[in-house]
Amino acid sequence: MPTSTARARRRRTAFRVFTGAIAAVAISPASARDLAWPNEVDARYRLTFDGFNVGVYNFASRYAGNKYSATGKTKISALFGAFKWTGTFTGSGSVDNAGPHPASYGMTYKKGKKVTSVRMGFDPSGVKSIALSPKKPPHPDAVKVKPDNLKHVFDPISATLAISNATGSDACNRTIPVFDGKARFDLRLSFKGREAIREKHPTGQPRELLVCRVKYVPIAGHKPKDFVHPWIDYDRIEIALRAIPSVGIYVPYRVYVPSKIGPAVMTAEEIRITAANNVQIALKQ
């Protein structure tokens, strides 16, 4: 039977996977958009593990001309407060009809008294600089990250913005290249189905979710032995997207990560959108 330390480590890994999944699931540029990017998007998500509430994830993005800035903040408390994890994610760059083009990314998380951070800079070809704190060499068993692995990849936070470019035909038909500062991986999306939803507060938007299967494919920076008999089911991750036609975007509504000790789930509680014409849209569960 796993020790409490092992269980805590597994929970921490699951939370990193599904908070990362929501940010990295929609990176690939899609077809050109017909509508202008919204002025603002603010979202609050509830985090659960094996049915228990464990935390929240807040996301905010702002647009000014062709520039964007975005912030994500996560707070997790599990094992009756014995395990606490907080993280802040920031990103900036430019946007056009093809999608977001990241310029910078930062991530800082705290577990107990330990603080870890990642900083990355981008140029048009991909990652141009990486700064890790604390700085330590990769694990000797890890697959080496090569220069080619850093080309034409996207950081997790800017990926959340790229989902706005999805259309009904391509939203669940993509292979997503991701680099988070340590690991390079692909997220392979495929169509699973559609799901009707109910609204306590009608918005006039379609009451339907587009559900995508997401296969996590490690490329570099990982230890191969971790994927021989993984406790997370990397083939059955799901993300459910909701179309908001009035502003021409999709928003992530739910992320589901199955594991041998219970599913980690991120569910939207409230999403507020300010369109380019300042029209307000509020989605609430």
Rank of each mutant, 00 (worst) to 15 (best):
R213H: 09
P137V: 00
V95W: 04
L209D: 10
K225M: 07
I244Y: 01
A98R: 00
A21V: 07
K151P: 05
A142M: 01
T74G: 05
F154E: 09
G168L: 05
P263V: 06
L79Y: 15
A43N: 08
P100E: 00
R213C: 03
S61V: 12
E40L: 11
P218K: 09
I237M: 15
N277V: 13
Y253Q: 11
T267E: 15
P147E: 06
G248R: 04
H152S: 14
M120A: 05
K113E: 10
W37S: 08
A64H: 11
H152T: 09
A43K: 06
P245L: 07
V228N: 13
F52V: 15
V247C: 08
Y63A: 00
T175F: 01
S246D: 15
K225D: 15
G87Y: 03
A70H: 06
Y256C: 04
A264S: 14
A162I: 02
G204E: 10
K284A: 10
V217M: 08
Y45D: 10
G221Y: 04
D170K: 08
I232F: 07
T19P: 06
T175M: 02
F59I: 09
G20C: 00
N66Y: 01
E238T: 06
H222G: 01
D96E: 03
S28M: 13
M120Y: 07
R33C: 03
Y63L: 08
P258H: 02
S104K: 09
R16K: 11
A268W: 06
G248K: 03
T160R: 04
L189W: 00
W231I: 13
H201K: 14
Y216N: 06
A171S: 06
Y234Q: 10
I22V: 13
L241Q: 04
V143M: 05
P140H: 10
A6N: 09
S61T: 14
K67A: 10
I237W: 09
V255W: 05
D141E: 14
R198N: 15
G204H: 08
I157P: 00
S158N: 05
K146A: 15
P258M: 03
F80H: 13
E199W: 10
H101P: 10
E195R: 14
V265E: 12
P230C: 03
S117A: 06
S117H: 01
A98G: 09
P252L: 04
R62F: 11
G181A: 07
N149M: 00
Y63E: 10
V54R: 07
Y57E: 03
H229Y: 12
H229C: 11
A8Y: 02
W85R: 07
G181Y: 00
A159F: 02
W37T: 05
V41A: 13
C212Y: 04
S259F: 07
A82N: 02
K151T: 04
D50E: 07
I197S: 14
Y68C: 00
L161D: 02
F49A: 15
R188H: 13
P156M: 05
P38R: 13
I261Y: 12
P177I: 08
G87D: 08
Y234R: 11
Y234H: 10
I157T: 12
F18H: 11
A183M: 14
K135Q: 12
